[in-house]
Design a protein around this nucleic acid. Structure first.
Lengths: 137, 137
DNA sequence: ATAGACCTTAATGTGTACTTGAAGGCAAGC
DNA sequence: GCTTGCCTTCAAGTACACATTAAGGTCTAT
């Protein structure tokens, strides 16, 4: 498939696909006789993977390093493991932060019907909940 | 407390605190007689809140709009609720994406101990198929 | 009273992640 | 043969979120 179809399939712009290839976030793409990119499902999956990781906040740079390890033939397992673990920790923290922000919004939403409590009060309530949660761990 | 102490307390640079104030992500900060910012715990909490939301990927612009609703005195409850709900949905999706990325990494990590037969193998299989296909052309 | 450490505003610079523009090639349809 | 519509590379432009610099003020200690 050509780059436009790939773009439509992935939701990533043609320019961004070229950019990802240039930045080695995806493998080098095969070309047709006239030099046009010929994109297959393997590339599509790679693009999707990049999109997913970008969506959860991984930078192009981290992602490139990660992918290089991922694709590496040499057995540098120990280093790979360390990097994955590091990345995992970052993402777990992010998830937890996100969850408390969600809790915050849910609280706000649930109290809309009752009355408009002040921000101070809400923040105090959230802090109380947070302390409680933390104490329960 | 002055801006430097606030910066140390929150981990947000002085320049960023000034920027947040200018962009209305935090309330206007009181000044001392000579015009220096005098930051109290309420502001610290607001800065921390901004940091948390930024960390989970909310843009300055979305955050400003959210905070304006949050702080609003006027009762436009219905619209506020709709917007908060929308925001909530976005964040929940993000949390789920993050979770599946975490699962992915965890899976990978757990299989490092055994041998290298995780997602890599799947990708290599795809690559093998790809090479085969190419050879057949 | 001069240095050093803090503060102020306003303007400009920086890194990231693309997007857009320029200049041109190839193939199909009118 | 000219337009349309896809493609190419390379360079330059853009948006966001600050960081940095300039030019100056205030406070404290030596």
């Amino acid at each position: 498939m050509n780059i436009k179809e790939a773009s439509e399939k992935t939701g990533v712009s043609s320019a961004a696909i070229r950019y990802y290839e240039k930045e080695s976030l995806i493998p080098e793409i095969d070309r047709t006789e006239v030099g046009n990119r010929d994109i297959d499902d393997r590339i599509i999956r790679r693009i999707t993977f990049v999109t997913q990781m970008r969506a959860v906040g991984m930078s192009i740079d981290s992602l490139r390093r990660y992918i290089q390890l991922f694709d590496a033939q040499e057995d540098n397992t120990k280093e790979q493991k360390a990097i994955l673990q590091e990345q995992l920790a970052v993402m777990e923290e992010k998830r937890d932060d996100l969850q408390s922000a969600i809790d915050h919004l849910n609280y706000k939403l649930n109290h809309f019907y009752d009355h408009m409590e002040t921000t101070e009060e809400e923040l105090r309530e959230l802090e109380r909940q947070h302390a409680e949660k933390k104490a329960n761990q």
